[in-house]
Nucleic acid binder design. Structure first.
Length: 484
DNA sequence: AAAAAAC
């Protein structure tokens, strides 16, 4: 039995087998062993397996094999239409998967490229115009390229939704549906993720034809290699708790997940000030900054990567020993993905979630998803723990009546580059409207419903912000009745 | 209560 679990037992095409061997792959993971033969048959697949068990190879290798073995008869080989499309929910993940596919395809004549937002479109356009068989993309930028006629997808034979449950959730679905509308109906569709809710599963079924469902573990299972702890702390003690655990367990590197972009930037700055080598990754950073932050963490130049859920899924960084959840995630599924950044490929990992009293509901959601009671432990505080080296130094410095930064005088460490903070503009004066007592607006004639009204542009946007318009409506009615 | 994905 176990001999079937080796890559060498697959009848992979020689260039693929060579690439795989060159990358040091020997034994297959369960998801690979089960999914590869099914994808090789050309069947639709819904595949679920824990984080860090090699899902990318599980779909990429058989996909490339199919592209090699089955020439697209309907087009001349000179035209090189896109034959396989791989969609992902974040730019970094698209980049990573594209790099991996390039490695698998390195000895073949199959060409691949990746398109995602936040960077110049032109180089991507150039690559697309040269022709690629495999296109890896995030949804928004792909639609741009489709509209610009840079990408022609009417010959696509295979589409992969990686992190499929995320791709099918409400924020991505409109874009996804639009993209799928450009693809031939006759195609193979592959869905992969570590998490599938029952609703998403049902929805996913409507995109698949006679699919094979592969579940190598109970769906929504956390990786068994991750040791999980939940600590009860007040919000004020969270940073101290992280330092405590880092010290106690001798953690060299970790992800620290937070729920908001602002919280991410703030926490990273605080931890940095407390002497921890930290950087931040979130969607308000420029793409250049995002890639640099990730590269620095990957290279081990940075110890803590404070991130929003932009980094929760898929990112494969070797040997990250720990994940902290500074905030309990809003979506229980994201907990599984976040802690899946550690304990990858059989390595062991530690996941520490900081739980404050206001997290009761989220913890209940999580217990429901994980189907187990979660034990919340107290932090084992170490009384002689220094409470932030540099922070204390600064406090003492200030209390001694000194000004400036003690590091400029005392620190033997190499000087850090000073950050420039822009002066905050004075806050705008408060609109007196907001101080008026609230009254239900009386609307005499409701505005006529325009059945044929179209939103601007032909793209369905998830970023509709009705709040302003509502406020404006209240404002105008208030003003008109203001005479009293 | 948020984040992500296009300019």
């Amino acid at each position: 039995m176990s001999d079937t679990l080796n890559f060498s037992n697959l009848s992979l095409a020689e260039p693929l087998a060579r690439a795989v061997a060159g990358m040091g792959y020997e034994s297959m993971t369960p998801i690979q062993a089960q999914a590869i033969p099914v994808v090789l048959q050309g069947r639709d697949v819904m595949g679920a397996a824990q984080t860090g068990t090699g899902k990318t190879a599980a779909f990429s290798l058989p996909l490339l094999q199919r592209l090699l073995k089955h020439e697209n008869a309907s087009t001349s080989p000179a035209r090189h239409p896109v034959r396989a499309l791989v969609l992902l929910p974040t730019r970094e993940l698209a980049d990573q998967v594209a790099q991996q596919i390039k490695l698998y395809a390195q000895h073949t004549n199959l060409r691949s490229t990746v398109v995602f937002g936040g960077i110049d479109m032109k180089p991507q356009t150039l690559e697309l115009k040269k022709g690629v068989e495999v296109l890896v993309a995030t949804p928004g930028r792909l639609l741009d390229h489709i509209e610009a006629k840079n990408a022609v997808l009417n010959q696509v034979e295979y589409v992969v939704l990686d992190e499929a449950d995320r791709m099918l959730d409400i924020g991505f679905l409109p874009d996804l549906q639009r993209i799928l509308s450009f693809l031939p109906k006759q195609r193979t569709t592959l869905l992969f993720s570590a998490t599938f809710s029952p609703e998403i599963k049902r929805l996913a079924g409507s995109y698949l034809q006679d699919p094979v469902t592969i579940e190598v573990s109970r769906p929504n299972a956390t990786a068994s290699t991750v040791e999980q702890h939940f600590y009860s702390v007040t919000d004020d003690d969270k940073r101290r708790a992280i330092r405590q655990v880092i010290r106690q367990r001798g953690i060299k590197q970790a992800f620290v997940f937070v729920n908001s972009k602002l919280g991410c930037a703030r926490l990273a700055r605080s931890l940095e000030r407390e002497g921890l080598n930290t950087t931040a990754l979130h969607g308000d950073k420029s793409q250049d900054e995002r890639l640099k932050a990730l590269a620095a963490f990957k290279a081990g130049e940075v110890d803590l990567l404070v991130a929003t859920d932009v980094a929760a899924r898929g990112l494969d960084i070797k040997d990250v020993p720990a994940v902290f959840n500074f905030d309990v995630p809003f979506n229980a599924e994201d907990y599984i993905h976040r802690i899946g950044r550690t304990g990858r490929a059989g390595a062991s990992g530690l996941a520490v979630t900081l739980v404050s009293p206001s997290d009761n509901r989220l913890m209940a959601d999580l217990e429901k998803l994980l189907k187990r009671k979660i034990e919340i432990e107290p932090v084992e505080w170490d009384d002689d723990q220094p409470r932030g080296r540099i922070n204390d130094g600064r406090r003492a410095w200030r209390e001694a009546g000194e000004v400036g930064d003690p590091r400029d005088v005392l620190d033997k460490a190499p000087e850090r580059p000073r950050r420039e903070y822009a002066a905050r503009p004075a806050p705008a004066p408060r609109d007196p409207f907001f101080d008026q007592p609230y009254e239900t607006p009386q609307v005499d004639t409701p505005p006529a419903w325009e059945a044929n009204a179209k939103p601007a542009g032909n793209r369905i946007s998830a970023n509709i912000k009705p709040k302003r318009k509502v406020a404006a409506l209240f404002k105008s009615t208030e003003k008109s009745t203001e005479t009293s």
